[in-house]
């Protein structure tokens, strides 16, 4: 469970988040959606202690993120931010291997090596294992970063726009993989998504942010209505159906 209580955040005097109060239950996929600049990334960054909490309280699995030692949190919570520019020249296998660092602290054992190989397999990266990350395409690099976060093996995984740079086959594969992690391994996944259709199909719960406040939250079918989405994005949105799937028409 992620408890966010009365969190407000300002950057240089500008309010980014105001009075956020929300509980994300353990298990399942929660999608954070909302227009640009709504504060989604900031909220994720605060939960993952990447930014210092200014007001309020956040606890992940009962651990207060402001007080728990950072290496302890790294075994409970992993985050991947959207700016994945890797300046260092590491092989894909080494990069994914650093996902295990919180567990082995520099002395990887057989279990760590197995976890790395499994992550490489899971994200279709085994043939690229010995390539340097800076020689990969944007999409391949993004997959390597996600694989590293996956290899960290935490109960809570936060992903900030993980579908960036991914073609539709890899985007679908990543969302299915996240679904599997939630369903089979009981992981709790919080993901910022730009494309509402992925949220519609894969998320259990949706939190809509607008202007630094929670504009909507609840089980996906309750949030995915034409009036809610239209007012959340400030732009007319229609819903349609293809077979059994709800499709969000926001582009035409």
């Amino acid at each position: 469970m992620i408890e966010i209580r009365q969190v407000s955040h300002r950057i240089g005097g500008t309010p980014i988040l105001s009075d956020i109060d929300v509980t994300i239950p353990k298990g399942g996929i929660t999608a954070l959606i909302g227009p640009n600049g709504a504060g989604k990334s900031t909220l994720l960054g605060l939960v993952a202690r990447l930014e210092r909490l200014q007001a309020g309280r956040i606890a992940v699995d009962g651990l207060d993120v402001a007080r728990t030692p950072t290496d302890r949190l790294a075994r409970t919570l992993a985050i991947l931010r959207q700016d994945g520019t890797v300046a260092a020249r590491l092989t894909v296998r080494d990069l994914v291997g650093f996902g295990r660092y919180p567990h082995h602290k520099g002395w990887p054992g057989p279990a760590d090596r197995d976890a790395v190989e499994e992550a490489l397999e899971a994200f279709d990266l085994a043939p690229l294992g010995t390539r340097f990350v800076d020689t990969l395409s944007g999409g391949q690099r993004q997959r390597a970063m996600v694989a590293m976060t996956y290899a960290q093996g935490t109960d809570y995984i936060l992903l900030d726009e993980p579908l960036n740079n991914l073609d539709l086959a890899h985007a679908r594969a990543l969302m299915q993989r996240l679904r599997g992690m939630a369903d089979r391994h009981g992981r709790t996944i919080v993901v910022v998504l730009h494309e509402v259709n992925y949220a519609a199909h894969y998320a259990d719960r949706i939190i809509g942010l607008r202007d630094g406040r929670i504009a909507a939250q609840g089980p996906a079918p309750e949030v995915l209505t034409e009036p809610t989405l239209s007012s959340l994005f400030g732009s007319p949105v229609r819903l349609g159906r293809v077979g059994e799937h709800t499709v969000v028409l926001h582009h035409a």
């Binding site: 202690r49 290496d71 075994r75 650093f98 996902g99 660092y101 919180p102 960290q152």
Partner: peptide, 8 residues
Amino acid sequence: EASVSLGL
């Protein structure tokens, strides 16, 4: 950010 996420 990657460092903090890995508990450094």
